[in-house]
Amino acid sequence: MKLRFQGKRITGLLSVVPRHEQSFVEDMKLFNFPEARSRKLMEVMGYDRHRLVEEGVCVSDLAVAGLQHLFESGKLAREEIDALILVTQTPDYPMPPTSNVIQGRLELKQDLFCMDINQGCAGFIVGLMQAFLLLEQPAIGKVVLINADVISRKTSPKDRNSYPLIGDAAAITVVERDPEAGVIHANIKMDGMRREALMIPAGGMRLPHSEQTALLEDVGDNNLRAQDHLRMDGSAVFNFVQVEIPPMVEGLLEQGGMDIDAVDWFLFHQPNRFMLQKLADKIGIPHAKMPMNVVEKYGNSSGVTIPMAIVENLRGPLLAQRFQVCLAGFGVGLTWGSMLMELGELGFCDMIEI
């Protein structure tokens, strides 16, 4: 599906990461696997360290801390917010919506549109699309998009296929109308037939949590996880990315009438360095134009990785300059989407630890 937006832009970005940092060397102690092979995995995939929440920390805690920082620093006024969109796969509760929890904890106005969206790796793209659509309403002048996940709490520490790359984080993106903003081109696709490539089997109504679903099982090669934990078919995900993402990005560039040279930065979801390198090579994107350093520093925080890549690599330049950027998210669902837009001259672009 091809989409087109105009007169909207991102005006601020904040990343929120837990202070607790854990190294891959520490992770190795949890695995029943030869250390030499683990270190080889570390080198190839780009693992180094990741940020993990402490026990009991939830998505609303990260979001509230980030918004309070913006309120207290004068970068955002609470009464300005007309819509609050939360994109997460790890809500505080099955009900009520976590966006309402955030609104209540911060005592934001009642005349506020709150929405939870259950999306993951493409969640930043999906969230921006929803924010742009809400800004078509005259009553809505400023949308706060929150991407946040605490996936580490749903990942087995004894599963080396998933645990070393998982990170917890949140991102807060302010989106507003701007009559001088250029055209934003976007596309989105979904394929639920391949939903089992990335999923947490238990915990919903189809398979409720129980003592049985919490039991650790050897799922092969001494990897231990329960049905309550994240399950990832690495080969299926890798093949999906290599097959589906290049034509999506190429189609987006054609849609926008641009070639690779006209794009300053390709800011993609960060599954791991190896996958991004292969993807860049297949599309023909110079590695220097595609940051690949998020997973090795913070871990894969699902829909947060795109704004994390922006803040980590461009926080200084984006305060004063504008760049032509291509954003792309792909993963759980399966869902894949991309966006071509101008980004820059932001009111804030920063990262905080909590």
Results as ranks from 00 to 15, higher is better:
A77W: 01
A83R: 06
A83D: 00
L86A: 06
V87L: 00
Q89F: 05
Q89T: 09
D92K: 04
M95E: 07
P96M: 00
P96A: 01
P96D: 01
P97F: 02
S99T: 11
V101S: 07
E107C: 08
Q110K: 15
L112D: 11
L112N: 12
F113N: 04
F113A: 12
F113E: 10
C114W: 11
I117T: 04
I117E: 08
I117Y: 04
N118W: 11
Q119F: 10
Q119A: 10
Q119W: 01
G120T: 11
C121G: 08
A122D: 14
G123A: 03
I125M: 03
G127H: 13
L128D: 10
M129Y: 07
A131M: 04
A131H: 10
F132H: 10
F132M: 12
E136K: 13
P138F: 00
A139W: 01
K142G: 00
K142S: 03
V144G: 04
L145T: 12
I146C: 09
N147F: 12
A148I: 12
K154W: 10
S156Q: 01
D159E: 03
D159V: 03
N161S: 14
N161T: 14
S162A: 15
Y163S: 09
P164V: 04
L165I: 13
I166T: 14
G167T: 02
D168G: 05
A170G: 14
I172D: 02
I172G: 04
V175F: 08
E176N: 06
R177P: 08
D178V: 15
P179Q: 10
A181D: 14
G182F: 01
N187E: 13
K189D: 13
D191M: 00
G192H: 00
R194K: 10
R195C: 07
L198R: 00
P201Y: 03
A202L: 04
G203H: 03
G203F: 02
R206W: 10
R206M: 13
